[in-house]
């Protein structure tokens, strides 16, 4: 039933977040993304076991069913839109995708790293990022120097905190 599916998926996601934070805090993880995907595989099994082991009666309660009735389509719609929007950003902005496309269009000739550098200028990408950040008001340019605006400073500090919290490099 849809009420059970909705609640079980949120419970599974909650478990994933908890385990992710515990594992990354307690263990010294070398392959971050591989570990995350292994955890997702485990939670997938947990999700299915939970779905088939829980009884339907609890989920038929009036208040819960009303909550799910309104939340389910909103969540699903937002997830679909987010997925589409983010997919577009990845296709457009990803360095790896751009390189793969350039190599693909070279055909059987292939490309050396020097030829890739001629096709795709990462220095220009960095200039573009700086233009973007100036456009959205995160940094400002004074003479030849770039400085954080108040918004940029808050952004930097939030990200620094999150990097420290998730044990990611680059915060200190």
């Amino acid at each position: 039933m849809i009420y059970k599916a909705f609640i079980v998926s949120l419970l599974s996601f909650f478990c994933f977040c908890i385990f992710h934070i515990i594992i990354f805090h307690k263990l010294n993880i070398k392959h971050k993304f591989r570990t995350i995907f292994s955890l997702v595989a485990l939670i997938t099994v947990f999700d299915l076991l939970l779905y088939f082991s829980l009884t339907d009666i609890f989920f038929s309660q009036y208040a819960l069913s009303k909550f799910v009735f309104f939340s389910n389509p909103i969540l699903l719609y937002l997830l679909c839109l987010y997925f589409y929007h983010h997919f577009m950003i990845i296709i457009d902005r990803s360095v790896s995708i751009r390189m793969a496309v350039d190599i693909f269009f070279s055909g059987n000739r292939g490309l050396t790293i020097e030829e890739i550098k001629q096709e795709y200028d990462l220095y220009e990408k960095l200039r573009d990022e700086l233009r973007d950040m100036t456009f959205i008001g995160r940094i400002k340019k004074e003479g030849e120097f770039y400085q954080n605006t108040d918004k940029g400073l808050q952004h930097a500090r939030v990200f620094k905190f999150l990097k420290r919290f998730l044990h990611l490099k680059g915060a200190d």
Partner: peptide, 16 residues
């Protein structure tokens, strides 16, 4: 619906 609960879970995971 069991599959649907996985889809929602993967959707939330994708955002995360």
């Amino acid at each position: 619906y069991a599959g649907y609960s996985l889809v929602l879970f993967y959707g939330c995971f994708f955002i995360y």
